[in-house]
């Protein structure tokens, strides 16, 4: 039994008089890929943002890779890669410049060759000199995936990575998750596509009203249970 890479103890996040999350206890082993399901507002995105230190927990203690989230947030951020719905670079940068900016900001070495292969992989090689504000929704999502690929973070936090992507793109996300798991990394995947999420993960967690209501190893048979809990 290896030590857990993410330890969450009694985690809670309050907005005024309402709890976005309460009493979350989880521990996730390294190399595990976890699918998070839940309706809008059930707290799963809040959970990811707490792990990525964008938010501050109201109660509870979180350790990521053995580092206390509250005290060593900077070191935690170096190990975590969060995918949100937009890429993080300035809209006037070309994709290549953007990636250069991104890798520099995240203290990654810049390597022309590997960057080429990343762009090849996300299918944007021919658009690498176009400015980012000319990209469509799906293209921008692919650019975000390129950001994720250009880092070697231990933990991937993917917030609805399938939105706006064509079947090719979805397959790309799947392959990213698979490769990351094969390399021993941990993935947390938030998605509304239950089938895909179950296939892509070792473990499924369902959030409802800020609580974990289901936490089981993933299998195709779990689908009915998940859908039932989701209501």
């Amino acid at each position: 039994m290896t030590a857990a890479v993410i330890e969450v103890h009694d985690l809670g996040k309050r907005y005024g008089e309402r709890d976005a999350l309460r009493g979350i206890d989880l521990s996730i082993e390294p190399g595990c890929s976890v699918a998070l399901f839940g309706h809008n507002g059930s707290g799963k995105t809040t959970f990811l943002k707490l792990l990525a230190t964008l938010l501050k927990p109201t109660t509870g203690r979180v350790t990521v890779a053995g580092l206390d989230l509250a005290r060593r947030s900077c070191a935690v951020r170096a190990r975590v890669s969060l995918l949100l719905d937009r890429p993080f670079f300035p809209p006037r940068f070309s994709l290549e410049e953007g990636l250069r900016y991104f890798t520099d900001l995240y203290e990654q070495p810049w390597d022309e060759q590997s960057m080429k292969s990343v762009l090849e992989r996300v299918g944007l090689r021919r658009r690498r000199l176009d400015p980012l504000n000319t990209f469509s929704r799906g293209m921008a999502q692919r650019a975000s995936l390129a950001c994720v690929l250009s880092r070697d973070a231990e933990i991937l936090l993917l917030d609805e990575p399938y939105t706006g992507l064509d079947p090719d793109g979805c397959a790309l996300v799947d392959s990213i998750v698979d490769d990351h798991s094969a390399a021993g990394g941990t993935t947390l995947l938030v998605t509304h596509e239950v089938d895909r999420g179950l296939r892509r993960s070792d473990r499924s967690i369902v959030f409802r009203g800020g609580r974990v209501v289901l936490d089981e190893p993933s299998s195709p048979e779990l689908k009915d249970a998940v859908l039932e809990v989701l209501g």
């Binding site: 964008l54 070191a75 951020r77 937009r86 890429p87 993080f88 900001l105």
Partner: peptide
């Protein structure tokens, strides 16, 4: 400004205090 918010998000997620 244009896209300033997502740039800020990126910086906040980077290992920078």
């Amino acid at each position: 400004g244009d896209g300033a918010e997502s740039v800020l998000q990126g910086i906040l997620l980077a290992p920078v205090s």
